[in-house]
Amino acid sequence: MLEEPILSVKNLSKQFGDGCRRCSDPSTRDLIKNYCPSCGMVFACRDISLDLYPGEILGVVGESGSGKSSLMKCLYFDSDVTSGELYLQDEEFYGQNLWTLSAQKKRYIRNHKYGMVYQNPVHGLKMDFTSIGNIAEKLIAAGNRNVDNMKMVGEKLLDTVHIPLFRMKEEPRNFSGGMQQRVQIAKALSNNPPVLFLDEVTTGLDLSVQADVLDLIKRIQREFGISMIVVSHDLAVIRMLADRTIVMLNGEVIENGLTDQILEDPIHPYTQTLVYSLL
Rank of each mutant, 00 (worst) to 15 (best):
Arg107Gln: 14
Asn111Ala: 15
Leu71Tyr: 07
Met127Arg: 10
Cys74Met: 07
Leu88Ser: 02
Ile32Gln: 11
Leu52Ala: 08
Cys20Pro: 04
Asn134His: 10
Tyr35Cys: 01
Tyr94Pro: 00
Asp78Trp: 03
Ser66Asn: 08
Leu86Glu: 06
Glu91Thr: 10
Lys73Ala: 10
Glu56Leu: 07
Tyr35Ala: 01
Arg107Phe: 03
Pro26Trp: 12
Phe43Pro: 02
Pro26Arg: 11
Lys113His: 09
Asn120Val: 07
Asp30Gln: 12
Val122Ser: 11
Gly84Leu: 03
Asn134Arg: 12
Asn111Arg: 14
Ile109Arg: 00
Glu92Tyr: 09
Asp80Glu: 14
Asp30Met: 06
Arg110Tyr: 06
Thr100Lys: 15
Asp47Ser: 07
Tyr94Lys: 09
Asn111Pro: 00
Ala103Ser: 14
Met41His: 04
Leu101Glu: 03
Thr130Leu: 11
Asp128Arg: 12
Leu58Phe: 06
Met41Cys: 07
Lys68Met: 08
Lys73Ile: 00
Ala44Gln: 11
Arg29Tyr: 05
Pro37Asp: 13
Leu12Pro: 00
Gln96Cys: 02
Lys106Leu: 02
Thr82Glu: 06
Val42Ala: 02
Gly59Glu: 05
Thr82Ile: 01
Ser79Leu: 15
Asp25Phe: 14
Asn111Gly: 00
Val81Gly: 09
Asn111His: 14
Asn97Gly: 04
Gln104Glu: 15
Lys113Ser: 03
Met127Pro: 04
Leu12Arg: 01
Tyr94Met: 05
Asp25Ile: 12
Ser49Asn: 02
Ala103Val: 13
Thr82Ser: 15
Ser38Asn: 13
Glu85Ile: 03
Phe43Arg: 10
Asp30Ala: 14
Asp80Ile: 06
Gly84Lys: 03
Gly19Val: 05
Cys74Gly: 08
Asn120Ser: 10
Asp80Arg: 12
Asn34Ser: 15
Val117Asn: 01
Ile32Trp: 08
Asn120Tyr: 06
Lys73Asp: 05
Ser83Met: 11
Tyr94Phe: 11
Ile32Met: 11
Gly55Asp: 11
Thr100Trp: 01
Ser69Glu: 02
Gly65Phe: 05
Tyr76Phe: 12
Arg22Tyr: 12
Gln96Thr: 09
Thr130Pro: 04
Ser69Met: 03
Leu88Asn: 02
Met127His: 06
Asp47Trp: 04
Leu50Val: 12
Ile109Ser: 00
Gly115Tyr: 00
Asp90Phe: 06
Arg21Thr: 12
Gln15Asn: 13
Leu86Cys: 08
Asn34Pro: 07
Thr82Met: 01
Leu101Lys: 08
Ala44Phe: 07
Asp25Arg: 15
Thr130Met: 11
Ser83Gln: 15
Tyr114Met: 15
Cys23Ser: 05
Ser49Gly: 01
Glu92Trp: 02
Phe77Asp: 00
Asn134Cys: 13
Pro26His: 11
Ser49Met: 04
Cys36Ile: 01
Gly40Asn: 07
Lys33Leu: 12
Thr28Gly: 07
Gly59Ile: 10
Gly115Ile: 00
Asn11Cys: 04
Lys106Ile: 01
Arg29Ser: 14
Gly84Asn: 02
Asp128Met: 11
His112Trp: 02
Phe129Asn: 00
Cys74Ser: 14
His112Met: 06
Met41Asn: 09
Ser79Cys: 08
Asp78Cys: 10
Pro54Gly: 05
Lys73Leu: 13
Leu98Ser: 05
Ser83Val: 09
Tyr87Pro: 01
Arg107Pro: 02
Ser66Val: 10
Thr130Ser: 15
Phe129Thr: 00
Arg46Leu: 05
Arg21Ile: 10
Val60Lys: 03
Arg29Val: 11
